[in-house]
Every structure is written in structure tokens, then in C-alpha cells.
């Protein structure tokens, strides 16, 4: 069976200091060429710190951001034109900020009708039936349909965002920090809802988050992004329990946890994205860095079984 989502050398560069004519002053590599594959029914967790390219990857996957290189294959069909409408039927996006992803001047029904109308050309009666079905699925009461977004709490608004993604009948969802804006008690409600929906509707998830524990709790496999590249990839139960890349270990050690001493983490910051180092981007913070690391960029390669790391000296 072909993967639900596959990226082939997908990369994104942003131009800086654009002039009216002529080439830009600088290029920023938001995402280096990346190959990822997600099997149908799988949840791939993507973690990384701010600015590492998580959201750029997500936006390319749904066609909101045209790739500078490479292409995306969804359910076996290559989509190489950034057209959200074409992507929309197959893959949908759930936004980080649930409230700002809903137009304040539309009722919930109007918001949910849009994908049914414009992606599927459904008639009035069919739309009504479908909205009732989906709204029940995300455990919201039907009387909410006539209200406006500002009347909802964050958790409810995020359910509405999920309902909109489901309304498009896409079977793949890109969830970009879907619970980061929510309180912990509500976060658990939404995560459980996502798990139920996945089982009921046979969905595939790409789950992006900076919260390692949340990603570990929901994913089958995890990819760790650092400075625009996947530095480690592997089964969820192994990536943080037995990291192979020094950065993944730093992440896992830094996560604040009950019953563990303050680590303090390594000093150092991300390199300047406008002036990237020639070798491994992590060399400046890595305790194992050698001459080779500073000169040659490590490529993602298998370390053990289905665990991959982009490191010259994996742990």
C-alpha cells in the first residue's frame, strides 16, 4: 500500500531583503530537503524548538506554502502545485490558535459549510446532514452551530477547528500544535477526542508539537527537527527513551519532569539562520563535536533497526 503522505526532497527557502528588481539580499533555509513517509493510519509526531521549520513543513504539506524544491505525494498522487483547494480534499490542517482560525464574523454553521460547499459541491440538505454528523463526532451540542466564535472557550473552538478539517472529508490531518494554546485539563480532552476520531474514521495524523511528552503519548513514530533538518527519526517508544542524536538527548533531558533534578541544559543557542555553519548545525552545542562535525554535514542514516539519526557519532 502506498504511504498516506510522502515527501520527496521537500525544501523551503525564504528570500530576505527583497528588492523591487533583482535577486534578494539573503536566503534563509527554513527546511532543508526532507524525505518523510507516513503510513495510512499512522501518527507521525514532529518535534522541535521554535524556528526549526515545523510550521513551514506543515504549511507545505497542505499547500499553503509553495515548496522551493521537491514535491509531495498524497495517497499515491503527486501534488506539486501549491493549491490548497486541491490538497484540501485529501489533507487538512488544524491550527495552533483555535480562536484566530475562526472568522469572528461568521457563525459556526457558515464556517463548517464552506468546505462542504466549495470542495465537494454539496447541496443544502446533504450539508445539513453531514454537519450534524461531524458536530456530534467532536462532541459539541447542535445549538452551538448558530453562535459566533468569540462565544467559545479555547477547547471548544479547537473542536470546531477539528470539525472543519473533518468536514472536508480528508483522511489525513496535519495538526500544528493543536493543544499548545489550551489548558492542561482541556488539552487532555482534545487529545482523547483526537484519538477517538482516529479510531472511528481511520485517520492519519501528522502531529506537530514542542511538548515532548504530548508527542510521545500520541505518536507511533517521531521525527525530531533541528534547524530545518530531520536529525532523528524512529519509533515513539525509543526516540526519547534511547535517543541516538545528541540533540534529541538534550531535548529529552531539558523537559521539566516531576522527580528529576534540574538539569540546566547545555549553554548555547541556535546558529544564525542567515549564516548557517558549514558542518553539523548542532556542533556549537554538542559535547561530542569533532573536526569532522564542523566540516561535513551529517546525513540521516539508519542507526539501529528503524531508528535514524543525522550524526557522525551517534550515541
Amino acid at each position: 500500500m502506498s504511504p498516506a503522505v510522502q515527501t520527496h526532497g521537500l525544501a523551503c527557502r525564504f528570500e530576505f531583503g527583497r528588492r523591487l528588481f533583482g535577486p534578494p539580499r539573503a536566503l534563509l533555509h527554513a527546511l532543508h530537503p526532507t524525505d518523510l513517509a507516513v503510513a495510512p493510519g499512522e501518527t507521525l509526531g514532529i518535534v522541535g524548538e521554535s524556528g526549526c521549520g515545523k510550521s513551514t513543513l506543515a504549511r507545505m504539506l497542505v499547500g499553503l506554502q509553495p515548496p522551493s524544491e521537491g514535491f509531495i505525494e498524497i495517497e499515491g498522487a503527486a501534488l506539486n502545485r501549491a493549491d490548497p483547494a486541491e490538497f484540501g480534499r485529501r489533507i487538512q490542517y488544524v491550527f495552533q490558535d483555535p480562536v484566530s482560525s475562526l472568522n469572528p464574523r461568521k457563525t459556526i454553521r457558515e464556517i463548517l459549510e464552506a468546505p462542504l460547499r466549495y470542495l465537494h459541491g454539496m447541496g443544502r440538505a446533504a450539508r445539513r446532514a453531514r454537519i450534524d454528523e461531524i458536530f456530534g463526532a467532536v462532541r459539541l451540542r447542535p445549538e452551538f452551530l448558530t453562535r459566533y466564535p468569540h462565544e467559545f472557550s479555547g477547547g471548544q473552538a479547537q473542536r470546531i477547528g477539528i470539525a472543519r478539517a473533518l468536514a472536508a472529508s480528508a483522511r489525513i490531518l496535519v495538526l500544528d500544535e493543536p493543544v499548545s494554546a489550551l489548558d492542561v485539563s482541556v488539552q487532555a480532552q482534545v487529545l482523547n477526542l483526537l484519538a477517538d476520531l482516529k479510531a472511528e474514521w481511520g485517520l492519519t495524523y501528522l502531529f506537530i508539537s514542542h511538548d515532548l511528552a504530548v508527542v510521545e503519548a500520541v505518536s507511533d513514530r517521531i521525527a525530531v527537527l533541528y534547524f530545518g533538518s530531520v536529525v532523528e527519526q524512529g519509533p515513539a517508544e525509543r526516540v526519547f527513551a534511547a535517543p541516538r542524536h545528541p540533540y534529541t538527548r538534550l531535548l529529552a533531558d531539558s523537559a521539566p519532569q516531576v522527580g528529576r533534578k534540574l538539569g540546566g541544559g547545555a549553554a548555547g543557542e541556535l546558529p544564525d539562520p542567515l549564516d548557517p555553519p558549514p558542518g553539523c548545525a548542532f556542533a556549537g552545542r554538542c559535547p561530542l563535536a569533532t573536526e569532522r562535525c564542523r566540516a561535513e554535514r551529517p546525513l540521516l542514516r539508519p542507526v539501529e533497526g528503524d531508528q535514524f539519526a543525522a550524526c557522525h557519532h551517534p550515541l
Binding site: L102, N103, A168
Partner: peptide, 9 residues
Amino acid sequence: FVDAARLSG
């Protein structure tokens, strides 16, 4: 929400 509208076709 503008991105969301684009994704709604």
C-alpha cells in the same frame, strides 16, 4: 482563518 478558508476550497 484566511488560510482556513483557502483550505476549505
